[in-house]
Computed example of a mutant assay.
Amino acid sequence: MQGQLGFDSMPRKLIKVTPSRLGVWADCPRRFRMTYVDRPTPPRGGPWAHSTLGAVVHNALRALFDLPVAKRTPETAAALVGTHWKDDGFADQDQAAVFRDRAAGWVHDYVKDQDVTDDPVGLERWVSAPVGTIVAEGRVDRIDHRDGELVIIDYKTGRHALTTDDARGSQALALYVLAARRTLRRPCTKVELHHLPTGTVAAWEHTEESLARHLTRAEETADEFQLAIDTAKAGGDPEVLFPPNPGRQCAWCDFRRNCAEGQSAGPQLDPWAMLSP
């Protein structure tokens, strides 16, 4: 009877995928388990200054685009950095003040040099859509509408300037394209990385072939972590299914205190160590 019903041909359950999940699995399966599987979640480490800095810049720019066009001035943008500022992760108030002023300068110059008069289609917009064997989803910093197409924009505040290769190779941006075009029902092929510290924009226009390559990689990774999750639920050994991947990334892992291999990989970084000099 079961064979007649054809259970083997039943629709496969789609795997929910975010760029973060894919990145964490590639980085370290044990960290993936602690982040997404273990309940309750193991205690995390404290805040990182570079993460605080990035969040403040993102929040300031989002608040700017919520204002009427006439109020989207460089001076207002810089002031919004102060409004959203936090000292979390910095060595002390003096260091925090230096980077607060630096971030205000980045945002000021960005608004001065970029056209901010058009209202975005989305700000911190959650997009989600079934594509292939996965549900691609995530929160996009900004979605513009230009020349009849959506443009995916990701703000960056890291140390290094970004290139066209970074935009082309970003799996996160490619998945956002796939999800946004289904969620918002408009054409979408273009992605941009806006690097605030240098004021540069790295852009790429995807083809269906390049998007398919990113999708295939995401599907393969999703299959890997879902198999590990399902096997663990069936009684498999989590230590075998989610092995540690010791390396330099252990120095800033949020779960370092719960991982002997990570602690042995090297000393822990100070919370402000990943800021630009």
Rank of each mutant, 00 (worst) to 15 (best):
G6D: 07
F7I: 08
M10E: 14
P11D: 02
I15M: 07
S20V: 03
G23V: 06
G23H: 04
G23F: 00
V24G: 10
W25T: 02
A26E: 13
D27H: 04
P29R: 04
R31P: 03
M34I: 01
M34L: 08
T35R: 10
T35D: 09
Y36I: 02
V37G: 08
D38T: 13
D38F: 04
R39K: 09
R39Q: 10
R39A: 10
P42A: 14
R44N: 11
L53K: 09
L53R: 06
L53M: 05
A55M: 11
V57G: 08
N59E: 15
A60N: 07
L61K: 12
A63I: 00
L67Y: 01
P68F: 05
V69N: 15
V69M: 13
A70F: 05
R72M: 12
R72C: 10
H84G: 11
W85Q: 07
W85L: 14
D87W: 00
A91W: 01
Q93C: 09
Q95N: 08
A96R: 01
F99K: 00
G105L: 02
Y110H: 07
D113L: 11
D113W: 08
D113I: 00
D115G: 14
V116P: 09
P120N: 14
V121Q: 12
W126C: 10
S128R: 10
A129H: 07
V131T: 11
V131L: 10
A136S: 15
A136F: 05
E137K: 10
V140A: 15
V140K: 11
R142T: 05
H145L: 10
E149L: 05
L150K: 03
Y155T: 04
K156D: 06
G158A: 12
R159N: 11
H160R: 14
H160Y: 07
H160G: 14
L162D: 05
L162I: 07
T164R: 06
T164G: 08
D165F: 07
Y176A: 14
Y176H: 13
R186C: 15
T189H: 15
V191L: 13
E192K: 04
L193R: 01
H195Q: 07
T198C: 13
G199K: 02
G199H: 09
T200I: 11
T200S: 15
A202Q: 08
E205F: 07
E205C: 14
E208D: 15
E208S: 15
H214Y: 04
T216F: 08
R217L: 14
R217N: 15
A218F: 01
I229L: 06
I229Q: 12
T231E: 13
K233E: 10
P238H: 11
P238K: 05
V240Y: 09
L241D: 04
F242N: 00
N245C: 07
N245A: 13
G247H: 08
W252Q: 13
W252V: 13
C253T: 08
S264M: 12
G266N: 06
W272L: 06
A273I: 04
M274H: 12
S276L: 03
